[in-house]
C-alpha cells in the first residue's frame, strides 16, 4: 500500500491515528446509511414498477379510446369539447426527506365530482369513456411521477454513497494504516540506533578510563 509522504515524527503519528479513527467511524456510518437507503429504495422501486405496469396498461387503453373519439369527431371539435375542463385542481406538492435526500411527494387533491363538462350533442361516446378513465387515472399518474423521481434521486445518492464507502474502505483506511506502520517502524529504528550509539559511547569511555 502506498504510504503518504510524511515526516516520521511522533506528532505526525498522533495525527494520522486520529484521522484513522475518524475515517473508520465515517466508514461505519456510511455503511449503515447504505443499508438503510437500500431498504427504502427497494420500497420505492417496487411501488414504481407496480404503478408503471398499471399505468402503461390503463393509459394505453384510454389513449386508444381517445383516438377513436378523435377519428369520429375530428381534431377541432375534440379540442373544443375539452377546452372547458373543470377538473384542473393542481395537486399538492411537498417534499419529503428520505435519508437526507429531498424527494418530491405529490398528492392529487380529491376531485370534486363535476362529471362531464362538455355537451353531449356534438361529442362521441368514446370521448366520455376516455375522459372518465383519464380522470380516474390522474392520482396514480401523480403518484408515479413522485415515486419515479424519488427512485432517480435515491439511485444517484446511493451510487455516491457507494463510491465514498469504497474510497474509504480500499484507499483511505489502508493508506493510513500503512502510514502509521511506517512511522512506528521508523521511530523504533531511531530508538534502537540511539541505544546502540549510547552503548558504543559507554564502551569507548570504559576503554579510555
Amino acid at each position: 500500500m502506498r504510504v503518504a509522504t510524511v515526516n516520521p515524527t511522533r506528532m505526525e503519528l498522533t495525527k494520522t491515528k486520529k484521522r484513522l479513527s475518524t475515517a473508520a467511524r465515517g466508514h461505519k456510518l456510511l455503511k449503515d446509511k447504505q443499508d438503510e437507503m437500500a431498504r427504502q429504495f427497494m420500497i420505492y422501486i417496487r411501488r414504481n414498477k407496480q404503478l408503471r405496469e398499471e399505468i402503461e396498461a390503463l393509459l394505453g387503453d384510454a389513449m386508444g379510446k381517445m383516438s377513436l373519439a378523435e377519428a369520429e369527431m375530428g381534431k377541432v371539435s375534440l379540442e373544443e369539447a375539452l377546452m372547458i375542463s373543470a377538473n384542473s385542481a393542481p395537486p399538492e406538492c411537498t417534499e419529503k426527506n428520505v435519508m437526507s435526500v429531498r424527494v418530491p411527494e405529490i398528492t392529487a387533491k380529491p376531485q370534486i365530482e363535476h362529471g362531464i363538462t362538455y355537451g353531449f350533442a356534438f361529442t362521441s361516446e368514446k370521448l366520455d369513456s376516455a375522459y372518465l378513465a383519464m380522470n380516474e387515472l390522474m392520482p396514480k399518474l401523480y403518484e408515479l411521477a413522485a415515486v419515479e423521481k424519488a427512485c432517480d434521486m435515491l439511485a444517484d445518492e446511493m451510487e455516491r454513497t457507494r463510491r465514498r464507502v469504497n474510497a474509504l474502505e480500499y484507499i483511505m483506511i489502508p493508506e493510513m494504516k500503512a502510514t502509521i506502520k511506517f512511522i512506528t517502524m521508523k521511530l523504533e529504528d531511531n530508538e534502537r540506533s540511539n541505544t546502540v550509539r549510547l552503548m558504543k559511547i559507554k564502551d569507548n569511555l570504559a576503554k579510555q578510563a
Partner: peptide, 8 residues
C-alpha cells in the same frame, strides 16, 4: 390530447 381531458 388525452391529458387535456384531465385539465392539464
Amino acid at each position: 390530447v388525452l391529458f387535456s381531458a384531465a385539465g392539464i
